[in-house]
């Protein structure tokens, strides 16, 4: 009886221990459609509410943040954000150049989904559709932040 109890406790404990980095986690193949966003401005509110930090209004700021190595995400239609860790052939997505050309674009991406501690991560293998910039909101919000407006124009 005691032996069964101890073995059961040991198994339950082992199942409850979180995976460590060296163990890795199992990914799942997914296809995600959504807008490429700057996750710092979106989640922090530093530049305003979530509607203002997407689309054309926020495009220049999104370029700045992506070039600064701030994590880029895909904002899916259901509101879920997938943090991008790989883009096609590169895992160097914080290098300041890899993701500039797709900022603010609405894309459909194939890749592997990983989830840990409340955050969804995607390693994009292929972009099966790139609709370009779809959300045009600069007439509503202007330049976000205002100092993104070009001078001498």
């Amino acid at each position: 009886m005691l032996k069964k109890f101890v073995l059961g406790a040991a198994l339950a404990f082992a199942a409850a221990v979180p995976a460590t980095a060296s163990q890795g986690t199992q990914g799942e193949h997914v296809q995600i459609t959504g807008e490429i966003i700057d996750t710092w401005c979106y989640f922090s509110g530093v530049m305003g509410g979530p509607d203002a930090v997407r689309g054309t209004a926020h495009h220049t700021c999104a370029l700045w943040c992506a070039a600064g190595g701030i994590p880029v995400g895909i904002l899916a239609d259901d509101g879920t954000v997938y943090m991008v860790l790989k883009w096609k052939d590169t895992k160097n997505v914080a290098d300041g150049t890899s993701l500039l050309s797709v900022q603010t674009h609405r894309v459909t991406a194939d890749g592997m989904l990983y989830e840990r501690d409340g955050i969804k991560y995607i390693m994009v293998d292929d972009v099966v559709n790139d609709e370009g910039i779809v959300l045009t909101n600069h007439e509503d919000f202007g330049f976000v932040p205002p100092f993104a407006q070009p001078k001498n124009k």
Binding site: G24, T25, M83, K91, N92, A94, Y114, M123
Partner: peptide, 20 residues
């Protein structure tokens, strides 16, 4: 982050080019 999720762990963590 890729190391933390998949076990693909370069010695330099990508040298600043991977998300951390």
């Amino acid at each position: 982050a890729i190391c933390g999720l998949t076990g693909d762990c370069p010695d330099d963590c990508g040298g600043g080019d991977r998300q951390m």
